[in-house]
Design a binder for these strands. Structure first.
Length: 353
DNA sequence: CAGGCGTGGAC
DNA sequence: TGTCCAAGCCT
């Protein structure tokens, strides 16, 4: 691949970045650990959402040592509401490995850093270029959008193999002396100017070198196929209160959706009627429903990226009839506030307060 | 490779 | 209201 304007392109881009870059918390440090934390939080997550989480997280875990051995429930609580919770555990696992195997020094080469849990091709390149000033590509959605327009690349960015094309493009274009600024400039340009819809080409510092600008088809790129198939699941949720006013919660499985987060007992509704789900609830959790305090406490939909939960919540008074199942317990409202709860459970909790 | 994995915002 | 996300990674 040839690109006649490489020098001008990279210089204009970096100059623009140094003028217009956003003042973000993780741009006020060169600590590889802190940059690592920011990059993991930013995966598929907006800057405005991340900022408060980033600040709280590093106040709680200012060093890799402090994070490496933190209790998992506390860690999940710090991540509560941010989503993609496996990121938190992978980050802790990776940090622990750095503490124990690399004497608390984040590896400064792609080979070693890529072995860390949760560090993929993008995050590896981001840490290496930003924290260590290494000329490594960091290709994310922004970079693919910007470069698909500049270089008129019409490969489908939804296909994993396409990333290689863009990595090679960055290898060609990257500013050899300011690789971190260059990578961040591509991302800031994608976020502020070269946006998915309505790109602000007239404000773009590199429009002169952009094929899509000259062709007038920037809004047609990148090419991205998509298949959004969301499954719908209906649940009956039992908000079960015992005689002393405590509520029944269970911890979810350690794998899969919302792993290790806490929830009110939920019974999937298939063909059962109310009476059958009630029996199922009582026998699964070894409780007896003494009375129904509110048949229709709350009804709502919670939309995940790949599925929808339709929640029908009932407030009942229960009495324990035998030992509770594993990972299940009664908690006061005060105790519940200390547990890591996914957003749908926070919606229910809010009604109880 | 395809699909699983959260959430809140923009249009 | 529905659609598509936003600085991806894991299996």
């Amino acid at each position: 691949m040839k690109y006649q304007h490489t020098e001008q392109f990279r210089q204009n881009l970096v100059d623009w970045f140094n003028q217009e870059k956003r003042d973000l918390p993780w741009r006020r440090t060169s600590d590889p650990y802190k940059i690592w934390v920011s990059e993991v939080m930013l995966q598929q997550t907006r800057v405005d959402t991340v900022i408060p989480y980033y600040n709280r997280f590093l106040e709680k875990y200012p060093t890799m040592q402090s994070l490496a051995y933190a209790p998992q429930e506390e860690l999940l609580k710090m991540w509560e509401g941010l989503g993609y919770y496996s990121r938190a555990r992978n980050l802790q696992s990776g940090v622990k490995e750095v503490v124990e195997k690399y004497d608390s020094q984040v590896p400064n080469n792609r080979h070693d850093i890529s072995k860390l849990k949760g560090v993929g091709p993008y995050t590896a390149g981001a840490i290496l270029s930003i924290a260590y000033n290494k000329p490594e590509h960091a290709v994310d959605g922004n970079v693919m959008r910007v470069l698909s327009r500049v270089l008129h690349i019409k490969e489908d960015i939804a296909l994993p193999k396409t990333r290689k094309t863009f990595e090679e493009a960055v290898d060609m274009l990257i500013h050899p002396n300011q690789p971190g600024d260059f990578n961040q400039a591509l991302m800031d340009l994608g976020a502020m100017i070269c946006t998915p819809t309505s790109p602000k080409c007239l404000l773009c510092p590199v429009r002169e070198y952009c094929t899509a600008f000259h062709e007038g088809d920037a809004d047609q790129l990148p090419i991205k196929t998509k298949k959004t198939k969301t499954k719908k699941i209906q649940f009956h949720v039992y908000v079960a209160k015992d005689a002393s006013g405590r509520y029944l919660l269970e911890r979810r499985s350690s794998e899969g959706l919302l792993a290790d987060m806490w929830q009110f007992p939920m019974i999937e509704i298939e063909k059962e009627n109310t009476s059958e789900t009630r029996k199922k609830f009582q026998s699964l959790y070894n409780v007896k429903i003494e009375s129904c305090l509110n048949e229709n406490l709350l009804t709502f939909k919670h939309i995940f990226s790949h599925l929808v939960w339709e929640m029908d919540c009932t407030l009942v008074k229960v009495e324990q009839t035998a030992n509770l199942p594993e990972n299940t317990n009664f908690f006061t409202l005060e105790q519940i506030a200390q547990l890591p709860l996914p957003v749908p459970m926070q919606k229910i909790l809010k009604v109880l307060n």
